[in-house]
Amino acid sequence: MITSTSLRALIVNWLPAIVVTVLLIVMWEVLVDVLDVQRWLLPAPSVIIAEMFDSFGFLMGNTRITMFEILVGFSVSIMLAVSLASGIVWSRTIERTIYPLIIASQTIPIITLAPLLIIWVGTDMMSKVIVIVLFTFFPIVISLVSGLRSVDKEMVDMLRTLGASPWQTFTKLMIPSALPSFFAGLKVASVVSVIGAVIGEWFGSSSGLGWLMKIAGGQFQTARVFAAIVVLSILAMALFAAVVAVEKWSLRKYPPTANRVIRLGES
């Protein structure tokens, strides 16, 4: 239920973004019209919206496929990142062997790897999941490791004097302390995962929004490309919002020591 105060807060929070977006769209519409830009070059927002209604079923069918790939890839990525980060924090040997590999994996231009993945694992969902994981696990691992490391040394000693085992220290102190950093990485990864899915689909797929964009682009159906972009943006924002919701819930349950929002511009 939305009370009048929470509705007001909602409007105050979102009004600046909405106003700017609407202004940009209006400018786009007007400029395309005034400068008489060709439809296949840059369609006006009204044309894109019309296209979204026209090919709604087609768009949604492919959206469902892309969304599923993202959810699977993102989940696999989180599980992989959590185990890697835990291993790195747990053991120096694991850190020394794994950390360089993780960093090296990020120097591979994943776009060039995608066609190879098609050859190796085929054109089914697996290749897209791998691309999404390659794109998203890195920010999660890095932020989680730094979060787990940022734990107060005195807190660790306090737990040791109470007889805590390393595992107890990890679960009762380090994980709750690392939550803010973990979610910072998760937010970056949630948005990047959408890019990963599109790139995965671009290089060998017969469905999904990435494939749809590639086909439509080749046929100069520019409005359809933009329609897919709009859907992808909505997907990314929804995923981001979901992560923020889980973050809010978990930080209410495990409040960090300092949870004041600092804005340097508003002293």
């Binding site: 107060d152 005195e154 807190m155 000693d157 306090m158 737990l159 040791r160 004097t161 109470l162 007889g163 805590a164 009762k172 102190l173 709750p176 349950k253 495990y254 409040p255 960090p256 020591t257």
Partner: peptide, 27 residues
């Protein structure tokens, strides 16, 4: 000796996500 000597440090070192009761019974 770790776990068998009670030690109260200078800082309170309370866990911010635990209630007073939950902090007290940590040991």
């Amino acid at each position: 000796r770790l776990g068998n000597v009670s030690y109260m440090q200078q800082k309170d070192l309370l866990l911010s996500w635990r209630t007073v009761a939950e902090n007290s019974r940590l040991g």
